[in-house]
Design a protein around this nucleic acid. Structure first.
Lengths: 97, 97
DNA sequence: TATATAGTTAGAATAATGTCTAAATATCTA
DNA sequence: TAGATATTTAGACATTATTCTAACTATATA
């Protein structure tokens, strides 16, 4: 179960949501991700670290590159949060925060 | 279709998410909502205005009170945003922002 | 080992957010 | 109309976020 506050805060930024969207097509290096934005690498690095803290993405080093990929399980958890509101009661959703 | 940036920003605050949660049990006045929090009424009023701008809630005046209620349709839209990531492609979800 | 490449960390500037108090608006009732 | 109640608006202040440049770390390769 995620810490919803971290998750929602991570999702509240447009750049970060676009990063997540980009990662849907598969693993990408930090540099490749940064190339998609009109923003410096350190700024993108910061956004990646926030997404990682929220457990929305994972990283692994491959040589000189650090490869980032999507963690779909947390998306499922957050969807559960929404399901609650709609009264659809999915599998194992409890109250959350 | 909601402006996801506004929606996610609205959802990124703990107090606002709790307000939404409270409203699940039905319409409530601004004062009743404020009573659930250790925070001044103006602060709650501000949170309500952000939720309203994001179209997550609606309001109507009833005498001296202003009654707030949940707009479930926007929750459904946002859920669609998540569905995209999980590749479940619900009814009429397009790319979004 | 020295140099280049990829990425992060540190620190600062600026903008945005959340909270408060005080004042304003709207409605009700005597 | 005057006063009470419910709520919002305005303005100030502190905290948090976002972004940048400069410096640092880690890996690869000549």
């Amino acid at each position: 179960m995620p810490l919803y506050n971290e998750t929602f805060k991570a999702l509240s930024d447009k750049t970060r949501r676009q990063i997540l969207r980009d990662l849907r097509s598969g693993e990408m290096s930090a540099g490749e991700i940064a190339d998609h934005f009109d923003m410096t690498k350190p700024s993108i690095s910061h956004h990646l670290s926030i997404l990682k803290q929220a457990d929305l993405i994972s990283d692994r080093r491959q040589g000189q590159n650090i490869m980032y990929s999507l963690n779909t399980s947390v998306f499922e958890d957050v969807m559960g949060w929404f399901m609650e509101f709609l009264g659809k009661a999915p599998n194992d959703i409890t109250k959350g925060e």
